[in-house]
Amino acid sequence: MSEPSYPEDLRYHPEHDWARIDGGEATLGITWYAQDALGEVVFYDGPEVGAEVSKDQPYAEVESVKAVSDVIAPLSGEVIAVNESLADAPEAVNADPYETGWMVKIRLSEPSEVDSLLDSASYAASLE
């Protein structure tokens, strides 16, 4: 994905993370902007199923050749699924940050936190 893209069906955290809300669950990942700033991702180190993540706290790390970045949780909850394919193909984070490059799926512990996230337009505006 070479052009900036911030899908409207997602909610965004100012630390460049997205969440796809599905009832009491959410899928999380990093935004186009974050993967572009980082460069080619060479390694992803994420939590295991069952781990707790807390809003605004790091839950994973992504590395490029010359940089490493914490991945910040936009919402709190328990990890119910992880993207196993990132272990062998971390480049998916660059190629398709919103689909094949997703990181974890969580069961929300504080669904009301969703209200604090940005919509696509506000997030894109914050990058100006």
């Binding site: 390694f43 590395e63 490029s64 050749v65 010359k66 940089a67 490493v68």
Partner: peptide, 12 residues
Amino acid sequence: LQTREQHIRREK
């Protein structure tokens, strides 16, 4: 694997 090292990861 330079991201392990001090010049990138600094205190971590």
